[in-house]
Amino acid sequence: MVSALNAQLTHHGATDVLRAAFEAVPDVALVSSFGAESVVLLHLAAMVKRDVPVIFIDTEMLFAETLVYQQEVAERLRLENVTVIRADDIATKDPDGTLHRRDTDACCALRKTVPLQKALAPYSGWMTGRKRYQSQTRTSLEFFEVEDATGRIKVNPLARWSPEDVLEYMDENRLPRHPLVAHGYPSIGCAPCTSKVADGEDPRAGRWRDQDKDECGIHFVDGKLVRVGQET
């Protein structure tokens, strides 16, 4: 199914990908960080299916601006089915909130990856706002993938969008911007692991700065980047 959908939609836009996803995987959820560019996919999805399940992971280390923005965007777009999830064992595994200083991968797993996998258990698929231009690990990103370990379909409607496409869409639809973008944060994650980006730097340079890490882990299974699986 994945290969057929990618071939069928090669020359189609994000809205067509969304419609195809809702038809092919009726029980699909949209996972959003409500970060710098998240409003684009949320807006597109809301226009096609306003009650699409939206999952937002509150790591309890997010910027206060992100939490406020999440509520504002959900209300502005009239999203009808937003679920906020949190890890249930932070008090035991990271009681003093310093795990990120010792082991960022373990912190991401505790606060993001594990809670998300639990939340996605009832669903056969999930949508992301990932794009090819965002990092070297995403340059061959397709609209549809399948996680070999879970069999879950992953949908990337904006995979082929450029940074200019994103900004143009935001402007044309007068979508609210994350307030931190104007303060030098073009890519926004947890507060302790996100820093400002200087002019000329890669937009994701502020994520886990000076570390050999550019993904939080939610797009990995068993420590490996999830690639497109075989025909299903």
Rank of each mutant, 00 (worst) to 15 (best):
V2K: 14
R209G: 06
I57W: 01
N6T: 07
H100C: 14
V181D: 13
G184L: 11
A106C: 03
S32I: 01
R50P: 01
S3Y: 04
G206L: 13
F143Y: 13
P122Y: 11
D96Y: 11
S187F: 07
R174C: 02
C190R: 08
W126M: 09
Q8C: 09
R227G: 15
T92S: 14
V25A: 10
T10A: 05
E231K: 08
I57G: 00
M61K: 11
P176R: 02
V146Q: 01
S140D: 12
F22S: 06
M47V: 04
A109F: 11
I90Q: 03
D105M: 14
E80K: 03
V84A: 04
T128F: 00
G13H: 00
R130A: 15
A109L: 07
A121S: 06
E172M: 06
R130L: 09
Y185C: 06
N81G: 07
Q71F: 11
R152Q: 12
G200R: 12
R138G: 15
T232G: 15
V181I: 10
L5W: 15
D89C: 07
L77M: 12
T128Q: 01
A149F: 04
E23I: 12
D171L: 11
G189M: 07
S195W: 15
R78D: 06
K112Q: 03
R101V: 07
P53E: 02
T92W: 08
I188C: 02
L42D: 04
D103P: 04
T59H: 05
A20E: 15
A121V: 12
K93V: 08
D27N: 07
A106P: 03
I90L: 02
P157G: 13
E215C: 09
M127Y: 06
T92P: 08
K224A: 15
A198D: 10
E37C: 00
